[in-house]
């Protein structure tokens, strides 16, 4: 798996696939989800992320909005990685992702496909795109903890 993920052709395929067929896309009208509108970071990407957490477990994540390839694909991958994880597991993955984006040492194994974005740090103007969905879920999880 991780050898395959070093192949740029495969990484490109992955990103294309998540952009053209984003997973967990489309919002639900359900008050058991909490949601976050990420629109104030830049005037381009404008996305909403929803999450449903029961008993410390992430049951579902949804997202939608206007976004570039990188924000759409990175958010789509995020949803796949974090659904069915406990809050603690999710926080570890999120932390690893931000370490990777920051070009620091991180745990590759838990990031799975999301390592497709390991070189984004070389394009500083795209870092916001690669993190917008991840920031949303991070804030949602943290807010959930405060509310309890």
């Amino acid at each position: 798996m991780s050898e395959m993920l070093k192949d740029p052709m495969i990484l490109r395929q992955l990103i294309m696939d998540h952009y053209e067929f984003p997973r967990n896309h489309g919002l639900v009208d359900d008050t058991t989800y909490s949601q976050k509108h990420m629109a104030s970071e830049s005037c381009i990407d404008d996305i909403v992320v929803q999450v449903k957490i029961i008993d410390d477990k992430i049951i579902d994540i949804r997202f939608d909005g206007v976004a570039c390839t990188i924000s759409t694909a990175s958010t789509s991958m995020m949803t796949e990685l974090l659904i069915d994880k406990t809050r603690l597991e999710a926080k570890k993955i999120i932390e690893a992702y931000f370490m990777m984006i920051d070009n620091q040492r991180y745990d590759e194994a838990i990031l799975n496909e999301a390592i497709a974005f390991s070189n984004v740090y070389k394009q500083p103007n795209r870092i916001k795109c690669a993190t917008i969905g991840w920031k949303a879920i991070k804030e949602l999880i943290e807010e959930g903890e405060v509310n309890e």
């Binding site: 740029p8 990484l11 490109r12 990103i15 390839t69 070189n119 984004v120 394009q123």
Partner: peptide, 10 residues
């Protein structure tokens, strides 16, 4: 192309 855009970040 979309592929070329993506290649810039991988």
């Amino acid at each position: 192309t979309l592929e070329k855009c993506i290649d810039l970040i991988i």
